[in-house]
Design a binder for these strands. Structure first.
Lengths: 354, 354
DNA sequence: CTGTTAGCGCCTTCAT
DNA sequence: ATGAAGGCGCTAACAG
């Protein structure tokens, strides 16, 4: 059966509501709504009729109205320091891939490492009535969690990924940074390196504390004493890697390996080492962190730790879905830890590992 | 003056509406609304009172209600093939940076180069009542624009960036691909290369047609005949770059330069050339496209074309804002063309250019 | 099975 | 300057 409403075509191209359909069929909007929502209490015939007419009139549900009524916006907010790095872009991609099929939209916000923008972003997202917030924190201060607690109080699922804070009732998805760091250090030791420098990130962030802990423990377990001069805090960029390496090479007792918790700093290190005629990996091993795409494109491929960002995004999304769907899991915190993958490449391979 | 409502603290922490404020002050919600929105017809005293009380009760405007009423969601949709590449991530970053201060949220959708997902995404975004759509098209078919036209018909601003289609009433922001390509080819000729191969992308996309056109014209203008064997269509990855290069090297009359419209393919080319003991740039020049971060990290830095993705995102956002704010510009199409920047690095530099 | 009613939170005429 | 009323589009409770 076909319906033609030639004289109403223009109106239809504007926007159709369930009232328009109801009027067309001489029924009530409620009935239309029921038909559209597969409510069981409705006859097959009217359902069919409504569906066909809706289709004919090009009806599209207004999700804003639905959102207002249900209190659910079907949007979730993602807060990251920045989007244009491989890591965060991949996490977001993972989140998006997991949530889109479930009907959620992802709203992204960047903090640029500014804690005020982080607070601002949270407020905006709460304001926008998001159904959940997934974030990688930028605010390093331990004591200023007030604005984050507001999210928890509102009973809105909050999930940290990668850069987390330790908070009650907040779930998180991270990799096992301690393990990653321990294994890397052990690997370097296995390669014959006994003087291993460590490029740390800002240790007010838990991930960097964990990485340091892994490094330290591996040294201890191998009876290698810790040399404070080998431990340098660097930002994640090439220049700081170069500078730190320069500092190391000028020591009376320079190291013979660098474990950099940043791929970019590792690259800077390699450049500086080559400049000084030091052979890699024969004289000196270098290990990065993050599996930035360029690490495998280099002439000398760089060993690094893969953080499975896509997987991390998907896991974070799943934790969110679990919280939304299971009332009982809503209150409990859920700490997912992903195992890191060591990618052992040329910059650290003197001896075949396996 | 301060207000304390100790017995209502719990209720306040739930959610405050303008009705709650009205009740508190024994006035009407309409008045509260007016006070909050700086409506002139209201006394200073009540405005002050309302503002203070709203603050005290931790009132936050429900943007969903506002959206439903006004028909404006304050969300805009961004559709890209994928998010985890430097180019698209940077464009999105630009869009976000420009639109966030204006109170807009960015909803991102990925097509994975699948035209069905593109259609799906557009429907979802329209459904979600976005105020505008910014997209880089994946659907290559010239004839299937029906679903895009629906956006235009609904009078929702639509702006293409980078990968555009030529459509009436649709604005776009692109770089001048023809110029980029012409200049690059000219540069290679200036370096003494007279047999320049061309790695093209899929020429159903306008950007790749334009790049080919620039290449062709530059050759013609220099009286260099076009050799069909030198023109190879490759996907944007390392492997295809290697394969194409292998093919070129096996020719009776191999080229002495490659202009690759993909940085990844350019990298593959360089690897393959080195493998064959060909010196770059002495024997052979290579030029990429896109300014992927790795191009400047290589031992041999790769010449490439910068597409100003951040700028492109910002421009696209500005075109959108202009359309929203100026009724008269809403109908007219606005084609912004950004000048590309040639980054001449080691892989193509025999002779100093300037 | 279907209709009636009401309300999600906000803003904006229309009165007063 | 403020109040009253209605509606954005949808669904759920309550009647029949």
């Amino acid at each position: 059966m076909y319906y033609f409403y030639p004289d109403r075509i223009f109106i239809m191209s504007e926007k159709t509501t369930i009232y328009d359909i109801a009027k067309e069929l001489n029924i009530t909007a409620a009935t239309v709504s029921r038909a559209l929502n597969n409510n069981p209490k409705i006859s097959q015939s009217t359902r069919k009729l409504v569906l066909e007419t809706a289709n004919k009139m090009n009806y599209k549900q207004n999700r804003l109205a639905l959102a207002l009524r249900s209190g659910k916006s079907n949007n979730i907010g993602v807060i990251v320091p920045r989007i244009n790095t491989n890591f965060f872009a991949s996490v977001i991609r993972g989140i998006e891939e997991e949530l889109h099929p479930e009907g959620y939209h992802v709203i992204i916000c960047q903090t640029h490492e500014d804690e005020n923008r982080e607070i601002e972003n949270i407020n905006t997202l709460l304001n926008a009535q998001v159904d959940g917030i997934l974030m990688s924190v930028s605010n390093l201060a331990e004591d200023n969690n007030h604005y984050i607690e507001r999210v928890v109080k509102k009973n809105i699922p909050l999930i940290f990924f990668d850069r987390k804070k330790d908070m009650k009732d907040v779930s998180s998805v991270t990799i096992d940074d301690y393990q990653a760091s321990y294994q890397t250090t052990q690997h370097l030791i296995d390669q014959g390196c006994n003087k291993i420098a460590f490029f740390s990130g800002d240790r007010s962030l838990e991930i960097y504390r964990e990485r340091y802990r892994g490094y330290e423990q591996a040294l201890l377990d191998n009876n290698i004493s810790i040399n404070k001069e080998y431990i340098i805090t660097v930002k994640s960029n090439v220049i700081e890697g170069q500078e730190a390496t320069e500092k190391l090479l000028s020591l009376d007792n320079p190291p013979n390996a660098i474990f950099s918790t940043s791929d970019f700093a590792a690259l800077g290190a390699i450049q500086k080492l080559k400049e000084n005629g030091i052979r890699i990996p024969e004289d000196f091993c270098v290990f990065g962190f993050g599996n930035e795409p360029f690490t495998k494109f280099m002439e000398l491929t760089i060993s690094t730790v893969d953080q499975s960002p896509l997987e991390m995004g998907k896991m974070a999304a799943q934790v969110f879905l679990d919280k939304i769907n299971n009332q009982n899991s809503k209150k409990t915190e859920n700490k997912v830890v992903i195992m890191p993958k060591l990618l052992i490449r040329q910059s650290s391979t003197r001896i075949a590992d396996n």
